[in-house]
């Protein structure tokens, strides 16, 4: 009996260590964001304190507000998602359901584009966008975000399109419906779930992107992942404000992640099953 109890205790201890290790940095940022400037610097670190929303008030409505950066992040992420979906849904349908010469090559091409390191895309694009004055613009950032969101979305959607039975379309064709009408009326509603999962992941990846954003952003367009830097400098780090900004940057993706919990593994491994994959 004691041996069994000892085993249960060990299992609980190991579980706690891992769960704590994964939650801690997030939880600690959250706690620090609720502290005063004095509490945050206390030694030993304070776990119990009187919480305050002062840091949030400062970073949202103070003089160095990051509200415009949050808005930037949302515009970039939503813009990327909308354009990606408009392009990816038809392409994924064609790759999953239609017959045409070069289909295998087309599918391989979509995967192969993911091999290109992002730094190899941003160097030439920096020169191009600088040439046409698109640095520090939404269209510049959204355009280049398509380089990673589009192959991802196409492959994720293909897997959902492949799951619907052929009979549905055939019945529609026999009724004399046009292809476009069938796609819109019969097929799309069938993959509504897959489309919403794809939307979640495309948004999430766009929100989290950093390399392209750090090169292409400026005073007009600066997403929150880049703007965080303003709170840290050699002379002084604004601890509570940095914590508050971190929490604000983490919140949307954590909510989306929990919302899409059941699909996370599929979303993370898409494409790999067929042969490629990254990120």
């Amino acid at each position: 009996m004691t041996a069994k109890r000892l085993r249960i205790a060990a299992v609980i201890a190991i579980s706690l260590i891992f769960i704590l290790a994964w939650m801690f940095p997030i939880l600690w940022s959250f706690l620090n964001s609720l502290k005063t400037d004095k509490d945050v610097l206390a030694y030993p670190p304070k776990v119990l304190f009187t919480p305050t929303l002062e840091a949030y008030r400062d970073v949202l409505f103070g003089s160095a507000s990051i509200l415009p950066n949050l808005v930037s992040s949302f515009i970039i992420s939503i813009g990327t998602t909308v354009i990606t979906m408009l392009l990816a849904v038809p392409a994924a349908y064609a790759l999953a359901r239609l017959r045409f010469p070069g289909k295998r090559f087309a599918g391989f091409y979509v995967l192969a584009t993911q091999m290109l390191p992002p730094v190899g895309i941003i160097i030439p694009y920096f020169l191009v966008l600088r040439g046409i004055g698109w640095i520090d613009t939404y269209q510049g950032i959204i355009l280049i975000y398509l380089s990673f969101s589009l192959p991802f979305a196409i492959w994720l959607l293909v897997s959902y399109f492949e799951d619907i039975p052929f009979e549905m379309e055939e019945a529609a064709y026999l009724d004399g419906a046009s292809r476009l009408r069938t796609l819109w009326r019969i097929i799309i509603p069938q993959v509504r779930g897959g489309i919403s999962v794809t939307v979640v992941f495309v948004f999430l990846n766009a929100w989290n992107e950093f390399l392209f954003a750090v090169v292409l952003s400026g005073n007009t367009v600066r997403p929150v992942t880049v703007a965080m830097y303003n709170f840290i400098s050699v002379e002084q780090t604004l601890w509570t404000k940095l914590a508050a900004v971190s929490v604000l940057a983490m919140l949307p993706v954590i909510l989306l992640g929990i919302f899409a919990q059941k699909h996370i593994v599929k979303g993370l491994t898409v494409g790999a099953v067929k042969g490629g994959g990254r990120r």
């Binding site: 994964w22 929100w207 965080m228 940057a249 993706v253 992640g257 996370i264």
Partner: peptide, 13 residues
Amino acid sequence: LIAILPVVLSPAV
């Protein structure tokens, strides 16, 4: 559930 938290975060954050 906990395993989801780190992977959805931006590596920058």
